[in-house]
Design a protein around this nucleic acid. Structure first.
Lengths: 109, 109
DNA sequence: ATAACATATGAACGATTGCTCATATGTTCA
DNA sequence: TGAACATATGAGCAATCGTTCATATGTTAT
């Protein structure tokens, strides 16, 4: 490999976050990187919704939605509450909206 | 599928962006959803860098980096300029930084 | 306790992804 | 022109991902 950048690299290496954090960051964005999950998050943009309503909205099976909600929950992007047989999901915090909003801006300019 | 949400769904459906846009949004975040590409973007956070310096920094092959830079460029997340044999890449705009910053905030709180 | 409903979950399968390897393209200098 | 260097690219392969299907779990009402 290549011409001389030792000095440059030393500085940049020092400024880079730890590998583990960068891995976590990648894992987080991976969750946003799927149309179904984006749709779910958009559906929850204004208000909470139960699983079967989301499935109905996206014309997908309850199982598929449930799997994706699990992924979203594991990444702390949604939270849920149970009311009888029904489980309602909602966006976990404002970061979800602002991340999506930034992405939206990027592609629509 | 499930109990009655017709009225609810009608409203939400009307508020959802077009399918094509949601697809594009997912595709954009997919690019952020990989540790190597995140590292590349972080490396370019302060200043432009040539391909071989990035490869050196991440201890990866020139080919692997070049492939990823192509993906980043296709998503308009980086731009490049050639100077002789060397090609320098830089972040395309501020959205890249703000998207990463939002993600960073989400995982470090 | 049993039936009906809402949701969750594990296994499996096809599709996509990220890397490697070989090689092509572009540029400079002798 | 040819050699050396920097980058780009296509094919192939292992690993990961998103869905489906079957079934399990949790809840309510009879």
């Amino acid at each position: 490999m290549a011409h001389n950048h030792e000095a440059l690299l030393k500085n940049i290496k020092a400024d880079m976050p730890a590998d583990e954090l960068l891995q976590d960051l990648g894992d987080l964005f991976k969750i946003f990187g799927d149309t179904t999950r984006i749709k779910i998050m958009y559906a929850l943009y204004e208000d909470e919704m139960c699983v079967c309503a989301i499935a109905d909205l996206l014309s997908m099976t309850q199982s598929a939605i449930s799997h994706q909600l699990k992924a979203l929950k594991a990444a702390n992007l949604v939270s849920s509450r149970r009311e009888g047989k029904t489980v309602y999901y909602r966006l976990a915090d404002e970061h979800v909206k602002s991340i999506i909003a930034q992405g939206y801006e990027h592609i629509t300019e």
